[in-house]
Write a protein that binds this DNA or RNA. Structure first.
Length: 286
DNA sequence: GTACTTGTTAAACT
DNA sequence: TAGTTTAACAAGTA
């Protein structure tokens, strides 16, 4: 489940490898991955160059020549794996990190570059997508997102405004990309745990102190997770197929039934909030 | 066979 | 109208 730190880890990794690379050929194994007319998609991409890779929230933006952009969303299980040509042997070459075979049965799209390097898009659940858009559409799409907690403009005042008078739960609000960009189910639970706030509490009911704690928690969690190249819970891997290291810092997510590591008394509970599995400590979090 | 997992969005609801 | 909630999407695991 790639959230902001995971997607940014991938963006950095891919930038190092494929900026300026020319696309020679595409192989589309699962057509519904591409949300643009397939012929148009292939025509524009073939022979084109990757000029830049940006990110907003969990969305990746590949900039091509002539103000064309490819939006890539990994959703829950998308993986972007980049192989230099000497490591591109299919069938589990010994150089392949984590024994991640490419291509595999979940490979949906392959991009072959002129220098023989290859980008694989794997996606078990087929929710991820590639979409070719012009500059106007790209700008319009990006406008739907709000600030990310790691941006300097994401100050306490901005955060308070988002929460004031909201009737929905804290959890639902943290997951709403139009209000806060980049948090997903894992980091939303972790942020609530750090701030000692129950995820199913009404957002508008938080005190000033709680708001400040939650604001700090959001920023710190994402920064720390980024430092450790993300969390691998199910199948997140970076552009080389390497897993993230943040899992060992998780205090709430996936720890239901285990003792809370902060109060050392209560057992972490799992409930459903905003239609999502939600983990919290019934003693620490008020 | 059933329940459960998640990011986003369209549709339904208040 | 706007804010909020729910179901749907898909395929694998327990």
């Amino acid at each position: 489940m790639p959230e902001l730190p995971e997607v940014e880890t991938i963006r950095r990794g891919l930038s190092a490898g494929l900026l300026g690379k020319k696309i020679n050929r595409l192989e589309i194994l699962w057509p519904r991955t591409v949300k643009t007319n397939l012929q148009k998609f292939a025509k524009i991409l073939t022979g084109n160059k990757i000029l830049n890779i940006e990110r907003l929230g969990k969305l990746l933006i590949f900039e091509l020549k002539n103000r064309q952009y490819v939006l890539v969303h990994l959703k829950m299980t998308g993986q972007l794996i980049y192989r230099a040509h000497d490591k591109c042997v299919a069938g589990g070459h010994k150089f392949l990190a984590q024994d991640l075979k490419t291509p595999n049965r979940h490979t949906r799209l392959i991009i072959y570059f002129a220098d023989k390097s290859i980008l694989y898009f794997n996606d078990l659940r087929k929710f991820g997508y590639f979409k070719l858009v012009d500059e106007l559409t790209k700008e319009k799409t990006l406008k739907q997102f709000s600030l990310e907690p790691i941006q300097p403009e994401f100050n306490l005042n901005h955060f308070k405004k988002i929460f004031s008078n909201r009737k929905t739960t804290v959890k639902a609000l943290l997951l709403n990309q139009k209000l806060i960009a980049g948090l997903g189910n894992i980091y939303a639970d972790e942020a609530c745990f750090r701030a000692k706030i129950r995820p199913n509490k009404k957002a508008g009911d938080l005190t000033d102190r709680q708001l400040k704690n939650l604001w700090l928690a959001c920023k710190n969690i994402l920064r720390q997770a980024l430092k450790y190249k993300g969390t691998t819970f199910n199948n997140f891997v970076d552009e080389k197929g390497v897993k993230g290291n943040y899992s060992r810092f998780l205090r709430a997510y996936g720890r239901q039934g285990q003792k809370c590591q902060r109060c050392r008394q209560a057992i972490i509970k799992k409930i459903k909030t905003a239609n999502r599995g939600t983990h919290y400590c019934p003693v620490c979090q008020k």
